Structures are given as C-alpha cells and as structure tokens.
Amino acid sequence: MGWSRKDLAQAALISSSTLHRFEKGEGLPNDGLLIDVRQAFEAASIKSIPENRGELEVEVREP
C-alpha cells in the first residue's frame, strides 16, 4: 500500500502521535480509533476478511 504513519493518520482523521502510541503498544486503542482506521482502509478499497466475521483484527506484540 505504501502508506506512511502520517498518511494513515491523515486518512483516518487521527493524530500521528496517537497512531504511533498504538503501534508501540502503549495502551489499548479505543473503539473509535479502530473504527477510524478501518474506515480509512475501506476508503482505500481494503476490506476486512469475511472469515473474520467482518471484524478488524489487531495483534499487539510485546517488545
């Protein structure tokens, strides 16, 4: 896809620092953040996988 963090943040209408904290595993994202990111992906024609019951699946890894 080639998006930077800044690109995704702009598409999702969230701050880049919020997205960065989420990527670093600092706390859990709220439902609003996940919805905003999902909508940004869907606007770019990236859909969630039907096998996942249409849910956005996120894996948070420990450092």
Rank of each mutant, 00 (worst) to 15 (best):
L33Y: 07
R61S: 00
H20N: 11
E57I: 13
S17H: 09
M1L: 01
D31N: 10
R61N: 01
V37E: 10
A11Q: 04
V60I: 15
G27F: 00
D36I: 00
A44C: 02
S45F: 03
K6W: 06
E51F: 13
I46G: 10
P50E: 01
W3C: 08
G32D: 15
L13P: 02
K24F: 07
N52H: 13
W3T: 02
M1W: 07
V58H: 07
E42H: 11
P29Q: 05
R21K: 11
A44H: 00
A40I: 04
G54D: 11
E42T: 05
E57C: 13
I35F: 11
G54S: 04
T18K: 11
L33W: 03
N30I: 01
D31M: 13
E59G: 07
L56F: 14
F22V: 12
S48Q: 08
A43Y: 07
G25P: 12
F22S: 03
D36F: 00
L33A: 10
V60Q: 14
K6A: 10
D36H: 04
L56W: 04
G27Q: 02
E23L: 08
I14G: 07
P50I: 01
W3K: 00
T18W: 09
G27H: 02
L8E: 05
M1R: 07
W3A: 06
L56I: 13
